[in-house]
């Protein structure tokens, strides 16, 4: 039976191990150094690229600002005009056209109904007057609410102008044999905005 005999002394083995370790650590450290150097170079140039571009954009901004500052009075005039235009346009859009409201009332008021007092505030109308009969009052309320069967109706496309009608009082005036009524009406102001 053959047996291998290692004639290398122990000390020599240690030397060889030590050499291998040194070699491995050297290679590893050099490889790591190359990688880290590569990453550093990439980050360095990337940051430099952004800084260069930032410098260019700052120059552009200063150029634009100097040109804008040279037209300061034009800017002031434009801002003044813009402010007034914006406010005025909203005023026009939100203004209530009472002419349309009154014309609508003419269309909705049936024959036999007289309006003696008429008080308009924002979103509500209080009115009172006389009618020839209770049916005329009912007809008037129905036409204000846009209900079918009323003798009077809107032809201006404002059927939903009046949102609620409340009969506050109704009584027969014995003197002139007419029906005295008092009505409160809610209306939608947005239906009277025209621009």
């Amino acid at each position: 039976m053959s047996q291998s005999i290692n004639l290398i002394p122990q000390q020599e083995k240690q030397e060889q191990q030590k050499t291998a370790i040194v070699k491995a650590s050297t290679v590893f450290s050099i490889v790591l150094l190359v990688i880290v150097a590569g990453v550093s170079a990439y980050l360095f140039f990337e940051a430099r690229k952004y800084q260069t571009k930032l410098g260019q954009v700052n120059d552009e901004i200063e150029d634009h600002r100097s040109k804008i500052n040279a037209k300061k009075q034009v800017e002031i005039d434009a801002r003044n005009l813009d402010k007034k235009y914006s406010v005025l346009e909203e005023l026009f859009k939100n203004r209530i056209h009472y002419s349309v409201l009154l014309r609508e009332f003419v269309l909705r008021t049936p024959a036999g109904v007289t309006i003696n007092q008429f008080d308009v505030r924002n979103k509500s109308i209080s009115l009172s007057g006389y009618a020839t009969s209770y049916i005329s009052v009912a007809d008037f309320i129905n036409s204000l609410l846009g209900k079918s069967g009323a003798s009077a109706s809107s032809s201006l496309g404002l059927e939903e102008l009046f949102t609620a009608v409340k009969l506050n009082s109704v009584s027969l005036d014995s003197g002139n044999k007419e029906v005295k009524y008092s009505i409160a009406i809610d209306y939608d102001p947005s239906k009277l905005n025209f621009y």
């Binding site: 650590s25 050297t26 050099i30 790591l32 150094l33 880290v36 150097a37 940051a47």
Partner: peptide, 29 residues
């Protein structure tokens, strides 16, 4: 181990002087 020691020293220097500051400043840039 002179070569590995020098290499690690350079790595540490690159990390502290370039990589770490740049990674912090790059998003802000």
């Amino acid at each position: 181990f002179i070569v590995p020691l020098v290499a690690f020293a350079v790595i540490a220097g690159l990390f502290m002087l370039i990589i770490l500051p740049t990674m912090k400043s790059l998003p802000n840039l």
